[in-house]
């Protein structure tokens, strides 16, 4: 849902869409938009001619950004932790994924 991130990770063909997190195909019950988004995505697959092609799909979300709800009911565990411990956030954006990310149970 963040085309720059998907592309930076090496996806060969990216279809970018301006829809909020959690609803990449459209609103619940809007089968028509969902179908057209999927069709346009598959057309982007067919039309891409070289690695790193990003195709921006021409769909507009029906709500203003300020009205869009997508966050979970309770903050994610990492959001809660970084809010409690800002030093961890600073260390992360300084370039370090902690080794705890590699182990189910942190030491």
């Amino acid at each position: 849902m963040i085309p720059e991130l998907t592309s930076a990770m090496g996806a060969p063909r990216v279809a970018a869409i301006d829809f909020p997190f959690g609803r990449p195909l459209g609103q619940p019950g809007d089968a028509s938009t969902q179908r057209e988004v999927l069709r346009a995505t598959l057309e982007a697959l067919v039309n891409a001619a070289a690695p790193s092609t990003v195709t921006e799909l021409p769909f507009a979300w029906p709500e203003p950004v300020g009205d869009v709800h997508w966050h979970p009911k309770e903050p994610s565990p990492i959001a809660r932790l970084l809010a409690q411990k800002p030093a961890l956030f600073k260390a992360l954006i300084a370039g370090g994924i902690p080794v705890a990310a590699s182990h189910r149970v942190a030491n």
């Binding site: 609803r23 019950g29 969902q34 709800h69 994610s76």
Partner: peptide
């Protein structure tokens, strides 16, 4: 990290 309510209402989203 997301609100799952929408896709549980309509999986096709």
């Amino acid at each position: 990290h997301i609100d799952n309510a929408y896709l549980l209402r309509d999986l096709d989203v």
